[in-house]
Nucleic acid binder design. Structure first.
Lengths: 229, 229
DNA sequence: GCAAAAGTGTTTCCCATACACCCATGG
DNA sequence: CCATGGGTGTATGGGAAACACTTTTGC
């Protein structure tokens, strides 16, 4: 691995987000090696020669977090390259966010002392390695704002889901409460967002909810704006 | 400069945009060296060891385009790193967009055969070097969409400007026509967008227009949405 | 029947649009 | 006086917010 050298190194860092118990959770790994040994950090690693950036991100996801590329939405967020952000030398890191539906507890991967999910509140008390606090904040904000004008919310849910579950995603990610009736109308009327199925979810104490699947669309027009922002 | 090597190299590429004669223009340089010698390309260059990404972008702006950092808004767009995008080896390039007010004709910079502004229409007929067509498209789309929800439009204008000029920016960048009256209301009522001055522009055949200056705000709430999109 | 969740109807209000109209200048 | 662009007023319509109400299940 790179020690302080005369070359710039390229890395990827991943902010893996999922919903657990109605709260946004992020996957952190505990570093086994220096620098920042023992500290919690975003999963990441160096890009190999000839490797695609997305490819490197998927590899890290698999190696360090034991997550397959199956149901994960991967997207570039920003690139961080301030000299000094990594004590080993000049490391330029491409930050990704990865969103997935109810992702499993990670198994410990390579060069990783421990790995687990953290809710964003718990995270307030932890000091992350490198500049990962900034990277994470940037990714979370990107995820929050992308829910407004894209159909990304569905990536936090299983293949088929109810409108309530979808509303739950927005409420969890934005930390707000939305009117169930209005949300239902808006979600179902928005072209290209949802595909109605002829199936119903098992009732949870009330009338069974119709199931939907994500339709092909990616952009939400008109957007679902967060209130008082 | 880097020949095919066993290391990944990091570069920046700049999409410099300005308005000229009511049309969005982009700055291209004609390459003096291989690869793609003679082809038109976005200004760009390798990041030096210990150099900040923004710093590298400003350096390229100054070296290749003879543009100072004065009235230019610089912002990261995306990072391109597919192996093979540069025949010299594995080059990861951080794409920036730079927006400026009525930027001057560039003087030829280092390692540059020629440099000039191109309107986006002219550009349709040119084949750009590397993957710069993709990079440029990505930056232009980012600029277009950022006008909707940020106060970025003012960076295309001088220090003080009239509402009509501001409307002109939107019309040029979006290629649409906006209602003058409604635009005036919306722009002046939006909190944090404009600061009203007690000065008036020289009349251009009608009532003199009041001058405004960009206020501190960065985000536009509510956004100025492009129509039928 | 009652509670709970799903889904629809209804009212109200805001805001974007369209466009008429007045204002201030040069010729 | 007219032409031109700046700026305001006003009627209209569509959609968001608030909330009442109906539907469909389990207990």
């Amino acid at each position: 691995m790179a020690t302080s050298s005369s070359e710039i190194h390229v890395a990827v860092d991943l902010t893996v987000l999922t919903l657990r118990d109605g709260a946004l959770n992020v996957l952190l790994i505990q570093r086994e090696d220096e620098p920042h040994r023992g500290a919690w950090a975003l999963p990441g690693g160096f890009v190999q020669l000839g490797e695609d950036l997305d490819g490197a991100a998927y590899r890290v996801l698999s190696d360090e977090a034991s997550l397959g590329s199956g149901a994960v939405h991967l997207e570039q967020v920003r690139t961080f390259g301030t000299p000094g952000r990594d004590p080993r030398g000049h490391v330029v890191s491409v930050a990704f966010m990865a969103l997935g539906a109810d992702l499993p507890d990670p198994r410990r991967g390579e060069d990783v002392a421990d790995a687990r999910w953290w809710s964003l509140e718990e995270l307030a008390e932890v000091k992350l390695a490198f500049d990962h606090a900034t990277v994470l904040e940037c990714a979370v904000e990107r995820a929050r704002s992308k829910l407004e004008y894209t159909t990304l919310a569905a990536t936090f849910l299983p293949e088929t889901f109810t409108i309530s579950q979808l509303r739950g995603v927005y409420e969890s990610v934005w930390g707000a409460t939305l009117d169930a009736g209005n949300f239902h109308r808006k979600a179902t009327r928005t072209e290209g967002f949802l595909q109605e199925l002829d199936q119903y979810a098992a009732p949870t104490g009330g009338r069974p909810a119709r199931l939907y699947r994500a339709a092909g669309g990616t952009s939400l027009m008109p957007p679902l704006l967060r209130a008082g922002d």
